[in-house]
Amino acid sequence: MAYNLKEAAKKPERLTGGHRLCAGCGAPVVVRQILRALKPEDHAVIGSATGCLEVSTFLYPYTAWKDSFIHNAFENSAASIAGAEAAYVAMKRKGKAKDETKFIAFGGDGGTYDIGLQALSGAMERGHDMLYVCYDNGAYMNTGIQRSSATPKYADTTTSPAGKKIPGKMQTRKDLTEIMANHHLPYVCQTAAIGNMKDLYEKAEKALYTKGATFMNVLAPCPRGWQYNTPDLMELNKLAVETCYWPLYEVIDGKYIINYKPKNKLPIRDFLKVQGRFKHLFKAGNEYMIEEIQAEVDKRWEALLKLAGEEA
């Protein structure tokens, strides 16, 4: 059935309201849309790394999760869900588990790009029938906006502060989607909640119902860390895609497909200027920083086009 936001939104919520995530946070939008792609009759076992998503949705004695949920620690969301999936396989074999069950692990960029990378790589390589979703907000937001390897260059964070001598984070962002693509998984994608969230929904559906280990990297802006007005969440997502900072693409059995090519690729400054974490880039004398970021975005976009066999 063709995607229809109205219809998708009619499905019962699997992450209910009442959770404590901030207004304007990208994470619950991403999670709810991904869970809408589950068949209503399927049970889900969902894991989360320690982080905003976990502490805001499961504060004893309350849980916002309608499906079964497990939080173990920071770096092992993938391993924990892998273990649950292994138990499911064995219990199915013994006739002790009957319901169709899907396995989803969530982690922020800290729990995925950094401390959880090993457990993620292991679980994906072993080919558990599970989906790992990274909701990437580009820093350790839960502990108060510390830099991660997903933080973009020159961003001001509390451990890469824009100071008098050092203008924010001095390193470029790790490309996790490419790392996962190079695990040769049946399905890897990068997406964001833009427009009617069709891209996100359809990718979630593919990732959930492709047999084996699948991976989604989803942009999830953070109003506190990025310093934008909370109603502007969807605008931030859109700018990330329109500037090619966050291209929408899939890698299906090794084949690259770019899902959206902006007709008029917007300059990166449009994405940077609406975020307080890049405020210092717009001071006189710092133009080179924006130029550098633009060059990096262009380089990565062109490399992606090449991987997909497309011309710039």
Binding site: I70, S80, A82, A84, A86
Partner: peptide
């Protein structure tokens, strides 16, 4: 970690 997931499952 996998044992925790498996046993909780």
């Amino acid at each position: 970690s996998a044992c925790v997931g498996a046993q909780a499952a």
